[in-house]
Design a protein around this nucleic acid. Structure first.
Lengths: 244, 244
DNA sequence: CGCCAACTTGATGGCTGTCAAGTCAGGTGG
DNA sequence: CCACCTGACTTGACAGCCATCAAGTTGGCG
């Protein structure tokens, strides 16, 4: 099922990957990227609804998303759980596992997806040899922390409309960075998953989408979203009473 | 003001530091710790109310707290801000700056404090030479991400009482790890700062403290907290309707 | 001693959760 | 091909938690 063939190896090589700009190899010379190829030698396909890893699984590898869409989900011992993020092509999964040698969240594919398996031991070894790789890996982790702080701010101080506006603008921006339309996309997650991520109930998400539509900011049809007024959404996000 | 004297160097050395178990040198051999001494050659004192760094400052160093207590604070462009964490002795400050080469939050001392300055370039260099240091540094960053996910879960799905109970238990546990009392301590932060961190208003924090006191869970007198019923607090935290 | 920031407590209102009913879209099987 | 079924979504009514506004208290510090 995931036997490494030499053909798949060829196809997997970082040096051929068009996600280079988003993934780990950023800033490496061509030569350095080629030696990265020894790092990533296996890909894995995950079908929609399946888990890449689950909380408690032994940590061994990081995963770079080659294609598809994931959610990560954390849980408390008393049965509560929450979506902690949505990840798309070029983003890294599994960083949470380094600290305890076990994964702390579930990573579930929201559509059929493919990931590159990055054995963590090898990554550390290469990071010791290639300063830019080390530096870039640290940057990726640091940015994840900064991103989480942004979500904490959102959860702690924004109202439902502001959260949803921020969410849509964030998705829009990430799609743009991948060459897709900034204003029109398909939501891979349900209202419930959006709500879980934003600390809202699914009804509130649905209601707020409808409100945005009434106000002419977006056009919603089930999972199909079209943002018709990006500046308007930004205004919704910033309306904390400080209009001057 | 922060001129490195040879005397202060001696006193700063990681090999003499009683926070070794909490800070970066965990898991290093005695020999390795000694070579760490070249890394940390300056300490800095921060008075209560002063900032160690501010959002936007160029990133150059990490800081290990030797003594004292800090809060970190993130802000949006529209004037909103939120406390993103409280840090005590043995914990690391500044990791958020690696990703963008600039700090993304303010670090403010909540009491007179002292930090060890860890030049980031040197840390990366040493991490390339000492595998355990590299590994430990990655773990520290990963744990910070996991911690943030926990806060996100708290902000997204817990009610005021649960948040405060979790907060008190977390403080209690961290004080315990440092050899202080698990049940009696002084809050270094104001109700407003607690509220900001937990996504609540200061009145709600105050009211909930009073409620806990009425219920015999804690005893509050201004900043002085005594937890009289730790299992009770844990029960408050877990009461999400799943009592079976 | 007096001032001020921090804190407590009360009254009221609004945002969002909860419960409920109905709609829509896609997939399956007859 | 169509009916049916199911999960996802929408919309409404109501309630509860927490924010807001307000007034008073406490404690530390000059």
């Amino acid at each position: 099922m995931n036997a490494p063939l030499s053909l798949s190896h060829l196809k997997t090589a970082c040096s051929n990957c068009n996600l280079r700009e988003l993934c780990l190899p950023v800033g490496l010379t061509h030569e350095e990227v080629e030696s990265l190829d020894e790092l990533v030698y296996t890909r894995k396909r995950i079908k929609r609804g399946e888990s890449l890893f689950r909380a408690g699984d032994a940590f061994q590898s990081l995963y770079a998303i080659r294609s598809g869409f994931f959610k990560t989900r954390v849980a408390t011992d008393d049965g509560r759980d929450q979506v902690s993020g949505f990840q798309m092509a070029g983003e890294l999964l599994g960083i949470d596992g380094i600290g305890t040698d076990a994964h702390n969240c579930d990573a579930v594919a929201l559509e059929d997806s493919e990931v590159c398996i990055i054995p963590y031991g090898k990554l550390e070894e290469l990071a010791r040899r290639f300063t830019p790789l080390q530096h870039h890996f640290h940057k990726v982790m640091s940015r994840e922390i900064v991103r989480d702080h942004g979500v904490m701010l959102l959860l702690g101080s924004m109202r439902a409309e502001e959260r949803l506006a921020a969410f849509l603008l964030n998705l829009s921006q990430r799609f743009t960075a991948r060459g897709y339309s900034a204003s029109e996309f398909i939501l891979r997650m349900t209202r419930e998953e959006i709500g879980s991520y934003l600390g809202l109930k699914l009804e509130t998400v649905s209601r707020t989408f409808s409100k945005f539509q009434d106000e002419g900011l977006i056009s919603v049809q089930q999972k199909h979203i079209r943002i018709t007024d990006i500046p308007g959404l930004k205004r919704v996000m910033g309306q904390s009473g400080a209009s001057c």
